[in-house]
């Protein structure tokens, strides 16, 4: 059996004086060339997990293997793990090229040529003689990336890599960095609390809560078939409804709905707003009680069957407040497991 690039199993960490462990039994694999996102609300233990893999925290229990080799006894500098910190941690007393050359071995001239090559790769050739404080946030981030690449790691850890960039810059930088990372073929583990970032940047994501990993999978999978109400709500807006399942169908307040996975008995279901359709119907059970027009689509809040439902509707004429509608599910509902 071939070894994954990174294998983490049963990672547990308790800080002195804390009632609960910050990380409890966390485990996942990461392949070379893959981007895995650890996502969760602040305080869920994702950064601590990252720091344990980097070697800056020692887990109380668990196993970390890099290319099949036990990494726990290794000091951070021996693990072959590059880290890009949230604040980039550039060395302010060194120039950009000296920063990038920091982790390169060899004679000075060769190191700087090498550093220039990586600066070129992140699109910053010519910035070498500057100091970090003379660069913009996005440029500093790319220097930090180049610095990590230059040290020739096996995998790279990114801690909230885009949180210090302003919103306008973020989406563009994200695409660019993704392209650069993919070109290197390294394994990338990154931490974020931003669901949009995780969904668009990662090949797979692991949702964490209170120190535990709740679900791991491809973004579209986790989004469409969340394992629990928490995962469903954390990755985006959703409608939760109780239902009585009978195999591939369930009886719900919105009628009999098809299920994304077979289930039996009392279940909690998730239906994303974009999976609900509204039809004007004077005899319909729903009444529109709120509307938010967002340009390419509109979100309606509909009161029906004693609850309020969110539905995103693309195009078409806008419905007025107070209008009667019928709600129709356009996609199967996802049954949720217990928390």
């Amino acid at each position: 059996m071939s070894q994954p690039l990174l294998r983490a199993r049963g990672l547990t960490k308790r800080f002195p004086g804390a009632a609960r462990p910050v990380v409890e039994e966390a485990g996942f694999d990461l392949e070379a060339g893959e981007i895995l996102a650890l996502i969760g609300p602040s305080g869920c233990g994702k950064t601590t997990t990252l720091r344990m893999i980097g070697g800056f925290e020692t887990p109380d229990a668990g196993e970390i293997r890099i290319e099949g080799r036990d990494a726990l006894p290794l000091a951070p500098e021996k693990r072959g793990v590059g880290v890009v910190f949230q604040d980039y941690a550039l060395f302010p007393h060194l120039t950009v090229v000296e920063n990038v050359a920091f982790g390169v071995k060899g004679p000075r001239l060769q190191r700087e040529t090498e550093a220039d090559r990586f600066l070129d790769m992140v699109g910053l050739s010519g910035y070498g003689p500057r100091y970090p404080d003379q660069l913009s946030g996005g440029q500093q981030q790319r220097v930090a990336l180049a610095r990590s690449f230059a040290a020739r790691p096996k995998l790279i850890l990114l801690d909230e890599p885009f949180s210090n960039l302003d919103a306008a810059l973020r989406a563009k930088t994200r695409r660019e960095i993704r392209r650069i990372l993919k070109a290197t073929g390294l394994g990338v583990l990154f931490v974020t609390h931003d669901q949009e970032e995780a969904l668009s940047f990662a090949d797979r994501l692991a949702v964490m809560r209170e120190g535990r990993i709740l679900q791991i999978g491809r973004p579209e999978e986790v989004y469409a078939r969340p394992a629990s109400a928490f995962v469903a709500q954390f990755l985006g807006r959703t409608n939760l409804l109780a239902g009585a399942a009978r195999g591939a169908q369930a009886e719900t307040p919105l009628g009999v709905l098809p299920l994304a996975a077979p289930a039996e008995g009392e279940v909690l279901l998730s239906l994303r707003p974009e999976d609900l359709g509204l039809e004007p119907d004077a005899a319909g059970l729903g009444e529109i009680v709120g509307r938010e027009f967002k340009g390419h689509d509109a979100t309606y809040w509909v009161r029906a069957a004693g609850a309020e439902w969110q539905a995103d509707v693309m195009g078409g004429p806008l419905l007025e407040l107070g209008a009667r509608v019928t709600i129709r599910a356009k996609a199967p509902a996802a049954p949720l497991g217990p928390e």
Partner: peptide
């Protein structure tokens, strides 16, 4: 942070 960065760089 910066010392950790230096250690991650070897």
């Amino acid at each position: 942070r910066r010392e950790e960065a230096a250690r991650a760089l070897g």
